[in-house]
Computed example of a mutant assay.
Amino acid sequence: MNEKSQLLREFKEWICFVSKIREMDWQIKIAEDKWSVHDIVSHILLWDKYFYEAAINPILNNMPLTLTQIDFDQFNKDAVEFGKTKTKEELIEMTIQYRNMILQSIESLEDDKLTKEYADGEFTVISYLKDFIWHDQHHVRQIEELKRRAK
């Protein structure tokens, strides 16, 4: 299996995980003064939406990237607030939709676009996948630990 296939397979795992935790109580916080499961899913969803719209889709369509310097804390706060306006089912649906759009777009990219440096060397598709696979897995571990404690 080549690197692209392996990374796409790992990146897709978030969809399976979100579906697997559908029956969980998403309002439980992972720890005191930390996010709930609902907040985490909303957070990842909005990062997916941002990167799809600002990077992946533009690369696919040979357009300039619109990535900007983001205040991560504010972005994450906004993601939590966004999540409060959505039901669990809406978040699941949007999570699957955006993650699949990213997966399909990257799957269709020519190999040279995977390692090409965009935004003055700030972004490559391969590094994006690796970073967000790590990010997904970080939050999966948090939620899995919460599930273990709740038993």
Rank of each mutant, 00 (worst) to 15 (best):
T95W: 04
D120E: 05
M94A: 10
L114D: 08
E110I: 07
D111V: 03
Y128P: 04
T115R: 15
E107K: 12
D131I: 05
Q137V: 07
D136K: 02
S105D: 06
I102N: 05
W134I: 15
K130C: 09
R99C: 05
E107G: 12
S127V: 10
D112G: 01
E107T: 11
S105E: 06
Y98F: 13
I102T: 07
E93C: 06
H135T: 12
E107P: 09
N100E: 13
F132Y: 14
G121M: 03
L109Y: 01
K116A: 01
V125H: 03
H138F: 04
K116V: 01
I96G: 03
G121S: 07
H135W: 04
Y128D: 13
T124L: 02
E107S: 15
N100W: 10
H135D: 09
Q97L: 14
E110F: 02
F132K: 08
Y118I: 02
Q104H: 14
W134N: 14
D112T: 08
E110R: 07
M101P: 05
S108W: 04
L103T: 14
W134M: 15
S105N: 01
Y128W: 12
S127R: 08
L114V: 04
I96D: 03
H138G: 07
L109R: 05
E122A: 14
K116C: 00
K130A: 05
E117T: 03
E117L: 12
R99I: 11
Q97E: 11
E110G: 11
E122T: 15
L129I: 06
K130V: 14
E93K: 11
H138R: 14
H135Y: 06
E117C: 01
M101T: 12
S105R: 00
L114Y: 02
I106Q: 03
D136V: 11
E117S: 01
M101D: 05
K113S: 12
E117P: 01
E122M: 12
I133Y: 08
L114F: 02
T115F: 13
I126G: 01
T95C: 04
Y128A: 14
Q104L: 05
K113C: 09
L103Y: 01
I133R: 04
V125M: 00
E93N: 10
Q104C: 07
E122G: 15
F123R: 04
Q97T: 12
L109T: 04
I106K: 02
V125I: 07
S105L: 07
E122N: 14
L129N: 08
S105G: 07
E107L: 10
D112I: 09
D120S: 08
E117W: 00
E110K: 07
K116G: 00
G121W: 02
V125T: 08
Q104A: 05
Q97D: 11
T95A: 12
T95M: 08
D111P: 15
M94V: 07
E117V: 08
D131N: 12
L129A: 08
L129W: 02
H135M: 05
L103D: 09
D131R: 09
E122P: 15
L114P: 02
F123P: 06
H138C: 10
D136E: 04
S127Q: 13
S105H: 07
I126M: 06
H135R: 10
E122L: 11
E107H: 07
W134F: 15
S105A: 11
D136A: 11
S127K: 09
I96H: 09
S108A: 15
M94G: 01
E93S: 14
I106L: 00
L129E: 12
